[in-house]
Amino acid sequence: MTSRPSFGSFFLRRLPAWLDRRSGRPRVYILPTRPGWLFMLSLAGLLVGAVNYNNNLAFMLTFLLGSVLFVALHQTHGQLAGLSAGPVRAEPVFAGETAWFELALDLGGKERPVVTFRIEGGGETIVNLAPDDRNPVRLPLPATRRGVLRPSAVEFSSTFPLGLFRAWTRIPLAAEGLVYPHPVPGPGLPSAAFSGQGQGASGGRGVDDFKGIRGYIPGDSPKRIAWKASSRGGRMFTKEFEGQAGISPELDFHQVEGTDAEYKLSRLTYLLLQAWASGGSFGLKLPGRVIEPGQGRAHRDRCLEALARFGE
């Protein structure tokens, strides 16, 4: 059920998630769910029956269920009490993909079934936490726009075991998730943009001679995917043609056609990925930031980060 407890939670959820002064742990809030209120209403009905008929077994049923309600309150609270979140990290993604925030948890050696995690702006993830679980919880957050995702908090909630109460807590996050620009394919840059020479004419995409295959990078045209090779393993491959590779471009923001900055960044991203995939060295020139040509994945990531953070 996705509905929240209606009564009072409106105000409580808007309180800042301050930390408990003594334990330093996030405070856990708890309120009855709608079935919880109905359960209490039923208990009142049972109690009236028991009192009126003076029936001790009916009293026993009522009190047993009432005590169970109390135990459920305690256990639902205990689902989150003592649960603390460790470091959070997210792998960078391209805009349009989903960023996965990995949240390391300290379970306090306790089993915590059916805990719902909701990162601010994201959907719900339901996890059964076993006491010796060391794997971080992965929480999705749609990365719609280039930039840096900074979810301010993650909400844990649980209604386990009986669904009569909902306990929840908000933990402030200091996590960043990089969102690279969405790569937009297109022709290569004018020759002036290249530090190499003589190959500019063939820098455009097209019908050059087949050279080989390389790993798929986002933005590659589906027409060029080497389906046969891709079908053999889990990875995707793209066919590469002579004329795309072997260049060592200095990717300059100002050399990219178009007026929209975001579009330009997207184009640069594609070119950068292409350059990296072809194994050559490449550099990046952005207004206010220049990255000298280099090679390798770390270099590529540095360039992509610069693109993601552009204008920050």
Partner: peptide, 20 residues
């Protein structure tokens, strides 16, 4: 779930009537 829970609560009244 909510409908199921309500059904379950109603069943308690049937249990109670047995005890009476």
């Amino acid at each position: 779930i909510r409908d199921r829970m309500v059904t379950l609560f109603l069943a308690y009244f049937l249990v109670l009537s047995n005890l009476l």
